[in-house]
Design a protein around this nucleic acid. Structure first.
Lengths: 350, 350
DNA sequence: TTGTAAGCGTTATCAT
DNA sequence: ATGATAACGCTTACAA
């Protein structure tokens, strides 16, 4: 017969004539037990190969863990938030029968300040853990430290808040993300040609961009035959600036082999490149809808993708585990997978 | 307050003065219930927003589902099996408290015939579902049909057995896999250059190879400036044949831009290419250890990866769901994600 | 047709 | 220090 019956506390109890309760106490370090019984029990438990049944445990505990996901939406890029939410929904579904109660607090990018106020409100109304996708980095520091002082668990998602006492960051390593994208682009470029970089905002609020740029410059060093042009810095205000610079570049530089986008204006850049010269390779980040279309038309070559649903999922899952196991976190960061998307595997990323 | 208490059968029962059991019967279509009570119950259930608690359900059911994973190992490539097993282990862990009992039946490629005999034995000893990673395709057909006749659930993993009555295939779409690899390679090749293909075995036992080759030829059509050389056919017996052909090719063809490997001899090919000419791009499939090293040294450019752990996981998970929900499968195939691995994201695929 | 009661394995309270 | 006992929410014989 194939069946191997699971061992329960009751089985052990019967075998050594010690009550379930006592065995339970020993296994879970509750109350006082004599050394002698402890020894016997632990031995039997080991040799009978006892594995606790989580379903029964969850049922017996029957607690509620209130966890909040706080994030922001911006009309231009609902992409990030929507994908994080996919993952948090999965987690909510997976743990709903085991006491997870997930509350959403979503604000518009317009009123950034709201986010922090909402978080304080939630903390007072009994939320035990927070997954925060921060709309601002600097002002969030104090808020997070306050939460930790109140005994709450805090996980930052997708965008980290450095130098604060959050328990965990779940998101991609932007430096590595830059390295990977640089590699993908560099391999597409024949020796002797040049790469242009479009750089977005700088400073602590734009760690994603500065880190990716750092990764790029690092990696390109391994391709000595490829030259990196000085970056074009875009302040985010007037897309026409990109347009003018790029059209000039395309018409003047016959040696341009590729473009590396760090402005999140891949859509615009792709359109312009396509009009002028379709031999220039184009690599960027993330998969919003317009990007998908350009990939299908082959006008964007590849995109480095961070698995945002996984980030949302993991953030909530870890919070749930912090709260239910009340085990302290051993890790402080969880870097999620970086993937490369082409037209050929685009369908798996929708 | 944030907490929203979960509604239980007991809650509903108290509210409308109808026993838990009756409500249960109505919700699960067991036994006979009068139209009147049925109406009342369903209405209340809906307005109270009742959601059944899976943990309690699993605990109460307390059944065992015996599922077997049958696979083969080959000394040269323990890679595939090991990765499938990672996934099946996850599933076993995840569902162990909900009645999943996973049995492994692994044979050596040397005695292929064993696999089918072992499967019959398991079927007789009470296994309810089978995840099969087949060592041979053709002889497995009858075996699978027999299993289905015996009322067993059958899922093929990683390699399908066509024209049989298996319930589900979980694995990659090899045609799409070829398309993707072709795209990755083509984008790295300057116009006017050529691609050489190393082709492994043909016929029904090698669908993976023939399908990938079909994908390649299809996709290269979208890159009119790139020429595909007639494939070199390798019968799998004498690696020296590859060596001779390739060295000749490298020294004679100054126009060679890339190599597409379908022989699973990427290690050998990479070494030779590296010795002669490191400008030729090299793209292949799957991530065995030797390939990883070549990627780190930049001598293999990229590899198309099929998520084997996910395949193992999904196969077992679906079997478990078939058996526990006793719901018939609506899908007959599940294509797993195809990913592109470079040096820059290799660390996520170990 | 409807309801009672026991049981799944773990946890928590309260006696002894 | 140890154990009896009653939950947790759902399922299922079996009784009414």
């Amino acid at each position: 017969m194939v069946q191997k019956n699971k061992v329960t506390l009751e089985d052990i109890s019967r075998k050594i004539n010690i009550s379930r309760t006592t065995i339970y106490k020993i296994l879970n370090n509750k109350g006082k037990v004599s050394e002698e019984t402890r020894r016997i029990v632990l031995e039997t438990v080991r040799e009978m190969n006892y594995v606790p049944n989580q379903a029964a445990k969850n049922l017996a505990l029957n607690k509620q863990y209130n966890i909040a996901f706080s994030g922001f939406n911006s009309p231009q890029t609902p992409y990030t938030l929507n994908n994080l939410l996919k993952g948090t929904d999965w987690a909510a579904e997976e743990f709903k029968d085991y006491g997870l109660n997930l509350i959403y607090s979503l604000i518009d990018r317009g009123n950034r300040g709201e986010q922090i106020r909402e978080i304080y409100k939630l903390a007072e109304s009994g939320v035990d853990g927070f997954a925060i996708f921060p709309s601002q980095v600097e002002p969030m520091k104090k808020c997070i430290n306050d939460l930790v002082d109140m005994g709450k668990y805090v996980v930052t998602v997708n965008k980290d808040v450095p130098d604060c006492r959050r328990h965990l960051y779940v998101g991609c390593d932007y430096y590595k993300s830059g390295i990977l994208a640089a590699e993908v682009l560099a391999r597409m470029i024949p020796p002797g040609q040049e790469i242009a970089v479009f750089l977005g905002g700088e400073g602590i609020e734009h760690m994603d961009i500065t880190e990716r740029y750092r990764g790029l410059t690092k990696k390109i060093g391994r391709f000595p035959s490829i030259k990196l042009l000085p970056p074009f810095k875009y302040d985010g205000n007037d897309p026409d600036k990109i347009k003018h610079f790029l059209t000039a570049l395309l018409s003047e530089n016959q040696n341009l082999g590729g473009i590396f986008d760090l402005t999140y204006e891949l859509d615009l850049i792709s359109r312009i490149v396509n009009k002028y010269n379709n031999k220039v390779r184009l690599v960027g980040f993330d998969l919003c809808d317009s990007v998908k279309n350009h990939m299908i038309s082959h006008s964007i070559d590849a995109v480095v993708f961070q698995d945002m649903p996984a980030q949302g999922y993991l953030a909530v899952k870890h919070l749930y585990q912090f709260l239910s196991d009340s085990a302290t976190a051993e890790i402080r960061e969880e870097s999620t997978k970086l993937e490369v998307v082409y037209e050929g595997n685009l369908e798996f990323y929708i």
